[in-house]
């Protein structure tokens, strides 16, 4: 395949796609100084290796990439070649500007066909798993088709191009969860998930999100969790929330509403009801209970 580079503002092929900032395929035949120096942008940058061996530093981490590997660089992450050099080989990349991607969630933009929940979940996976390098050869096919669609502009190409970008994100999210979980050790995988839940307790977790994080469908996920923990995923989450809340109540320095919201309850009312149902005490009664001992 021939080299090409399309840049937003220059290439007419990208007119209908303001979210695509750059799309290119490069065959690098010689090593040049400073050919890949450190950059950090506000776009998502995706690189797919076709041929050769690339030594890169992504967000302080060293990686060696081989054909079939795919690197995902998130907004704000620094990216450079080892010794600031682009190695010899062939690679293609696409830079995308997303409407939003941060701790509160991700949205691709109006052009995307992904539902809001799907988008949020994929965003969570990208941010939490932080797997920058994925074994994802199938993405080369997606990028090749994407190029043909952009160049040929046949009937329906706007839809096809946007669908292909959606597909790229879905593949990345799925592979990322698979690579992070061996699919052999459920207790270990569940432990990792539990850590994530604890670190983001205020987030309104859905079963879909939790299942996606470890790469299972919701039905299998629910069944596995029930089997392993004795609870449904949401009830297990309530366990963690209440235990965390008890710790904060005992510390005596935070008000009940803040504790409620901080541990993921909708309101202090919702917290109170759930807490009382389980423990027999309201949060403030429970707090008063731990009086100095005799």
């Amino acid at each position: 395949m021939n080299q090409f580079i399309l840049q937003q503002g220059h290439a007419r092929e990208l007119h209908a796609f303001p979210h695509i900032l750059e799309f290119a395929l490069k065959k690098n035949n010689s090593i040049q100084l400073n050919s890949l120096h450190a950059t950090s942008t506000d776009s998502v940058r995706i690189y797919s290796i076709v041929d050769g061996k690339f030594e890169w530093v992504i967000g302080e981490q060293n990686h060696i990439l081989y054909p079939g590997d795919l690197a995902v660089i998130l907004p704000g992450q620094t990216f450079r070649g080892e010794k600031d050099i682009l190695n010899i080989g062939t690679l293609s990349w696409i830079h995308l500007r997303l409407e939003k991607i941060d701790a509160t969630g991700m949205s691709l933009g109006k052009w995307s066909y992904l539902s809001r929940t799907e988008c949020l979940t994929i965003g969570k996976i990208l941010l939490l798993n932080l797997t920058t390098v994925l074994k994802l050869k199938e993405c080369q096919g997606i990028l090749t088709t994407l190029r043909q669609e952009l160049m040929n502009q046949e009937i329906g190409f706007t839809t096809r191009v946007n669908q292909l970008i959606d597909e790229l994100f879905i593949s990345i999210a799925r592979q990322s969860t698979r690579q992070n979980n061996s699919q052999r050790d459920f207790p270990q995988t569940f432990m990792k998930l539990e850590q994530t839940l604890r670190q983001n307790l205020a987030h309104q977790w859905t079963v879909e999100e939790m299942a996606a994080l470890i790469g299972l469908g919701t039905t299998t996920f629910t069944e596995k969790v029930k089997n392993y923990t004795g609870f449904s995923p949401l009830n297990y989450l309530i366990n963690i929330r209440i235990s965390e809340a008890i710790k904060l109540l005992n510390r005596q320095d935070e008000n009940v509403t803040d504790i409620a919201l901080g541990t993921g309850f909708y309101s202090s009312q919702h917290f109170s009801t759930t807490f009382k149902k389980l423990t027999g005490y309201t949060p403030s009664e429970f707090r008063k209970r731990n009086l100095p001992s005799k």
């Binding site: 209440i242 235990s243 710790k247």
Partner: peptide, 13 residues
């Protein structure tokens, strides 16, 4: 292990 989680889990079960 988290003593509160053990307690709450026991109570819940």
């Amino acid at each position: 292990q988290d003593p509160e989680q053990i307690f709450i889990t026991m109570l819940y079960v």
